[in-house]
């Protein structure tokens, strides 16, 4: 009687997974460090809670938050308006118009926001007579308006690059197709090109808003009492580092919430592009 070995049904031994890899240990240690840091900050804020200081500086900080919100919102909106002619210039085939737009955007993107702010705020002081004659002194005398003015010009340069880049990224076939359908250039722009370009531009626009929120802290240096300005004021009176920690927490939460909201918006607006 012949007899054949049945094929072995036993699986080859599975390589034993190492449970304590160096990566996991490092990760655990780092997470514990973060947790320790978070706990010590919470402890510091709870233990150092001083009702007197909160009563004294709390309202100032709240008004600072409001000033920051206004500063950022106005700069972004005004910047978007200013960016339109710059985009037209950047996309123009005329070398002079293109050159001016490029120079504008290169200047504002190549120099620090702080230096630009100084240039406007302190520089305006040098032309007091001219500005008074033109009736603009009321505007440039105020650090708050100077900050809005500078930030708008600055973000306009960045927004223009974002939008111009997004428009250029729309395939030329879209222009040709619109042309062959007999659409006017204006209609082509608003009905065909911009809807596609704005989708591409969505993420960089979100980054620009976040950069503006962070950059707006610079206004505090020219005496604007925004969130950072009020924080610096309170710190100079109390030498209490907690105030900076509070400001950091507020900025972090704002930026993180905005980032998440923007991500959700982007997911919703691009749902037709996903498969």
């Amino acid at each position: 009687m012949t007899y054949v070995d049945a094929p072995s049904t036993e699986r080859p031994p599975v390589a034993k997974r190492r449970t304590w890899t160096s990566a996991r240990i490092t990760g655990l240690v780092l997470m514990m460090l973060w947790a320790a840091l978070a706990l010590s900050i919470v402890y510091m804020l709870v233990a150092g809670y001083d009702p007197e200081k909160v009563a004294k500086y709390g309202p100032r900080i709240l008004s600072g938050i409001w000033v920051t919100v206004k500063l950022v919102a106005m700069s972004i909106v005004l910047g978007a308006l200013i960016s339109i002619p710059v985009v037209i210039g950047r996309l123009s085939h005329n070398p002079i118009i293109g050159g001016i737009a490029f120079g504008y955007s290169y200047f504002f993107r190549g120099t620090p926001l702080l230096a630009q702010t100084f240039l406007v705020y302190y520089g305006a002081g040098q032309f007091t007579d001219v500005l008074k004659a033109a009736g603009l002194w009321v505007f440039f005398r105020d650090a708050y308006f100077c900050a809005i003015f500078t930030f708008s010009l600055n973000t306009a340069a960045y927004q223009a690059e974002i939008l111009a880049g997004a428009i250029r990224a729309v395939p030329s076939g879209q222009w040709q197709a619109a042309d062959s359908l007999g659409l006017r250039p204006f209609t082509t722009m608003f009905k065909v090109i911009l809807p596609q370009a704005l989708i591409t531009a969505l993420r960089p626009y979100g980054n620009e808003v976040i950069l503006m929120i962070k950059g707006s802290a610079i206004a505090s240096i020219i005496t604007v009492l925004d969130l950072m300005g009020q924080t610096r004021y309170a710190f100079s009176k109390t030498y209490d580092l907690q105030i900076y920690i509070w400001a950091a927490v507020i900025y972090l939460i704002t930026v993180e919430v905005l980032r998440r909201l923007w991500e959700m918006m982007e997911r919703r607006l691009t749902r037709h592009l996903r498969r």
Binding site: I210, I213, K214, G215, S216, A217, I218, S220, I221, M228, T231, R232, F235, L241, Y244, I245, A247, A248, Y251, L252, V255, E256, R259
Partner: peptide
């Protein structure tokens, strides 16, 4: 997420 200026002061 932190403003550059705030990180510097911290």
């Amino acid at each position: 997420g932190l403003p550059e200026l705030l990180t510097l002061f911290l």
